[in-house]
Design a protein around this nucleic acid. Structure first.
Lengths: 231, 231
DNA sequence: TCGGCTTTGTGCAAACATTCACAAGGGCGT
DNA sequence: ACGCCCTTGTGAATGTTTGCACAAAGCCGA
């Protein structure tokens, strides 16, 4: 979301669009691996990941030449290569700020801890929430943010607070050393140059769907004029 | 996510990238309106929305010429125009399937109902969940999916189930007439041509952040070798 | 009424992304 | 050892998105 200059200079420099798809491939690969599949072609993997096979091959080619012509890709090996590229071979401690419905849902989300991410703490500013158990941890007070971040060397923060508190929380996270932020609060965060922010916004997704739904409805009406408007 | 041919054919056909930003502009506009601001320049609005001002102007120009040169945009008027374009002047009933942590968090999310979206029902396959109160409604059994969708003319469905059940739920939603789906389950859904799917995936977002975090860490080490590693 | 100030709307070029189509290359059966 | 078949990796063509830079246009004060 916040862009470093990037450019495709020789060795490194994987396109952003590719990076965004690697986790999808990784998930499909895990499913294949559990399935016992040893080898997969770009076509099969592409179908599993819901993309075009040429795109998949080009994406993977950015990581190196890990396929075998006439055969396909070794599932295990590719899992390792993609994981490594994404930085998932190391452990990433994460703090979640905000223990409301969303924060709790996130803490309980299994796929979270499963691959490289570990919740260092679930924080909330509300003293009434502090101590209440969520998943295998208990909510701690926001005052401990700085010490938790320092102690666990946390570099990723998740903001699940109301929009009003988000910028304040963000500033404290950044000041304490966090350089990557996942923001669930419905607002724009302003951060220094070196900090990455990604935003997840339910309401925006719904509005995009509404746009397309409206267009579909409009087409239906002008062509057939029925159903949607009818009583 | 699932693409209709699109293309920029004359009259209609707003670029997908633009559609994805309109909700962001809309939010910024609401904030300005509550603030009492009557008029806003592209530069100010761009800052509030976190984008480049030329991009914002081009985006808005797709809706029509609603600005006044030398002055800017009338906030109220622009709110209306953007809302209309997004289809938010009408009411969109939504069903949420899955009353786990995430489904409940979604049902409780205020910004949900606030702008045009209304939760027609919160469904769960687990009989033990049925009847438990969430927000201002109570959980109903998945068996009622078809009847709820028909009765309320629901065209948008939200899937907040485990990955294993998602495709099945999706198929039932589509069969019952839903044509837009927001999928929180970590899996790829396959749907007929005419159905739109958008995916929100926490784990993928974290993995993308990890990729950038790793790159930053690698650069820091090779250039200055300090701080991040230091005690 | 006129000229200057400000801000929109947009032509254009560069950057980025997707897709096609095929040559290069590896395995396998004979 | 050879040749066939299959699939990768990638050049080139196409489509989309971004951002600059500026002409067109409305407002205001003199």
């Amino acid at each position: 979301m916040s862009h470093r200059p990037m450019s495709a200079h020789g060795s490194h420099g994987i396109p952003e669009a590719t990076v965004a798809r690697l986790p999808v491939y990784l998930r499909a690969l895990y499913a294949l691996a559990e399935n016992g599949t040893a080898t997969v072609s770009s076509e099969e993997l592409a179908v599993a990941a819901g993309v075009n096979s040429a795109k998949l091959r080009k994406d993977l080619s950015h990581l190196g030449s890990y396929g075998t012509r006439g055969v396909g890709y070794d599932v295990q090996y590719l899992v390792y290569q993609v994981s490594r590229e994404l930085g998932l071979t190391q452990d990433w401690p994460v703090v979640i700020v905000g223990a409301g419905n969303l924060g709790r849902a996130l803490a309980n989300y299994g796929g979270f801890a499963s691959r490289g991410f570990r919740i260092a703490a679930l924080l909330d500013a509300d003293a009434a929430q502090v101590g209440s158990p969520v998943a295998s941890l208990s909510v701690r007070h926001s005052d401990e943010m700085e010490s938790v971040i320092k102690e666990h060397r946390v570099s990723i923060g998740v903001i699940a607070t109301p929009a009003g508190s988000a910028q304040g929380v963000c500033d404290r996270l950044v000041a304490a050393g966090v350089t990557s932020i996942l923001n669930f609060a419905p607002c724009v965060l302003s951060v220094p140059e070196h900090v990455d922010v990604r935003k997840v916004d339910l309401s925006i997704e719904l509005q995009i769907l509404a746009f397309h739904a409206q267009r579909k409805a409009a087409m239906g009406n002008s062509v057939a004029d029925a159903q949607v408007v009818a009583t």
